[in-house]
Design a protein around this nucleic acid. Structure first.
Ligand SMILES: NC(=O)c1ccc[n+]([C@@H]2O[C@H](COP(=O)([O-])OP(=O)(O)OC[C@H]3O[C@@H](n4cnc5c(N)ncnc54)[C@H](O)[C@@H]3O)[C@@H](O)[C@H]2O)c1
Ligand SMILES: NC(=O)c1ccc[n+]([C@@H]2O[C@H](COP(=O)([O-])OP(=O)(O)OC[C@H]3O[C@@H](n4cnc5c(N)ncnc54)[C@H](O)[C@@H]3O)[C@@H](O)[C@H]2O)c1
Lengths: 254, 254
DNA sequence: CCATCTTTGTGCACGCGTTCACAAAGACAT
DNA sequence: ATGTCTTTGTGAACGCGTGCACAAAGATGG
């Protein structure tokens, strides 16, 4: 069994609660929209509605950043946009590499919202030699062999993994070894990373399964009596082949 | 306020905590992998490691489903796979529609892991007349005009929105009106839905911004040690500080 | 300058989720 | 059967996040 597995750090992020950090981008988006409409100030109530959160929660969130509001008036939109951007580190340029330029990787590369917030696609990397040199979204795909050099040359600290699940850990290891300390993982796998490296995952399959759970519950509640419990048919064991790539654990270590 | 209810209906999900529900797919994935390797039983410790969670948490999660383990031995893999699948509602077929077949929508349609768990892409819908009839991932794209009919004919209750942000709310409204009660939203917008409809969002931009926040913190802390001008030196009270780490639940029904 | 009105900032209580720690349950050997 | 050893299932403590409710701050008008 694994030895000395360090405990989970509990997220002591310099005073700002993790839950708040996760909402800041939400506020920023709403504020940016207001800014584009030249709205000068906004109340916590209005902004909260736009962001889909409780107004008290929003005020408390902002209180962690400092007191940027004016009582009786609200918050200055432009100032708040700047403060949140600065807090999130969006005032600087973040070169990002995407590894695995398949269906998803290509879509990500083409995604406009990527660059809209200081994130710049510095390079696209794929293991397929046939793709090397081919431009995707105007950026030529480079081969995995040069991964380390690419990371180093561009000062990349954020990497996006969009390879098949089987290759994800290996790619992750190389990224980390090359200096990447933040990873966004789209592959359905648990990535093991050393301390100090952040991993966030996006998993479509998990989201759908959670929705299915609630969906089933809704249906069950509606027809509570008509649906007998226990018609245990169709046990979905491992009858057929399982997903070619869609079935491996996935979580965040750290 | 004019906006509809935004409160959380307490989410009394059949006794199973929301946080647990969100982890079930994770366990299921790990268990499926074990099943494929014909592993008969697994201990909470092993499974927890594979899923990247605390073993006590895993045991407590399973305890909500019932007592499926055998003390001194562990859990029967096959049985647990079935129990979790059933709990998540994966023993039945879930027809899903994807609206907005652009870069992302096409990638999603091509995604194999989609169908691997009872989710079936029943239809692809796009507003672009030029796309109508064109097959994507072997499925002909249909026009938005027929959205309501498609939903009804296929008994779709889960919809995926991959349209531009500006069209998301409108598409959402139509989906809901047509009978969809679960939505997975990829567009960077807050969707307003009536009570009883679940919305989960996947937002690449937000994930990157959260990573950037921690990345900036790491860089700042590093510099603080080399830079003598640091204002606050004793950030950590008494030790025990573990790495930063960062992961936020992301569980949030609507 | 004072009164009133609006909205912030936050103290406080509560509930959920996490983790520890351990008694009990059962397998397995003797 | 009895003892030992492994592992579950869970009681209890704790910490985080959420939301209420309100005093204080400041704008606005007279
Ligand atoms: N397509 C989706 O909508 C979707 C949704 C959720 C998750 N995912 C996951 O994202 C990943 C990619 O999905 P996809 O549909 O783009 O698959 P894909 O097969 O189209 O693309 C995978 C790409 O990764 C490349 N690759 C393989 N091994 C590599 C390696 N070691 N280093 C670098 N590149 C490598 C391949 O050459 C290929 O171009 C998969 O893990 C999938 O499960 C995809
Ligand atoms: N591409 C990515 O990697 C990525 C990542 C994160 C989020 N997103 C978001 O996902 C959404 C789609 O991204 P994309 O890159 O695929 O964009 P895209 O422009 O390539 O595709 C959008 C598609 O939606 C269709 N559409 C527009 N209005 C519609 C309507 N009212 N009804 C039905 N279909 C409609 C368009 O015809 C087009 O085919 C955007 O909101 C984007 O912000 C994309």
């Amino acid at each position: 069994m694994a030895t000395g597995r360090t405990h989970r750090p509990a997220t002591r992020s310099r005073g700002i609660p993790e839950a708040t950090v996760a909402r800041l981008p939400l506020y920023l988006r709403a504020l940016t929209a207001l800014s584009e409409r030249s709205v000068p100030t906004v109340s916590s109530e209005e902004l909260a509605a736009a962001a889909g959160v409780n107004s008290a929660k929003l005020r408390k969130d902002f209180s962690y950043l400092g007191s940027y509001g004016t009582r009786g008036v609200g918050y200055d939109v432009e100032y708040l946009v700047y403060q949140i951007s600065r807090e999130l580190g969006l005032t600087q340029d973040w070169p990002v590499v995407i590894v695995g330029i398949g269906n998803l990787g290509a879509a990500l590369a083409n995604y406009g919202g990527f660059a809209s917030r200081g994130f710049r696609v510095a390079a696209l990397i794929d293991a397929d030699p046939a793709m090397a040199g081919k431009p995707v979204a105007g950026i030529p795909v480079q081969h995995t062999d040069d991964l380390e050099k690419i990371i180093e040359d561009n000062g990349v600290s954020i990497g996006v993994i969009a390879t098949p699940a089987g290759a994800a850990q290996q790619v992750c290891d190389r990224l980390v070894a090359a200096g990447v300390t933040s990873i966004l993982n789209f592959a359905p796998t648990v990535l093991n990373v050393p301390e100090g490296v952040d991993v966030r995952k996006v998993d479509l399959s998990i989201e759908l399964q959670i929705l299915a759970f609630h969906e089933q519950r809704k249906a069950g509640e509606e027809a509570a009596s008509t649906d007998g419990t226990g018609p245990v048919t169709a046990v979905r064991g491992e009858s057929g082949d399982k997903g070619p790539d869609g079935d491996v654990p996935a979580v965040m270590p750290a």
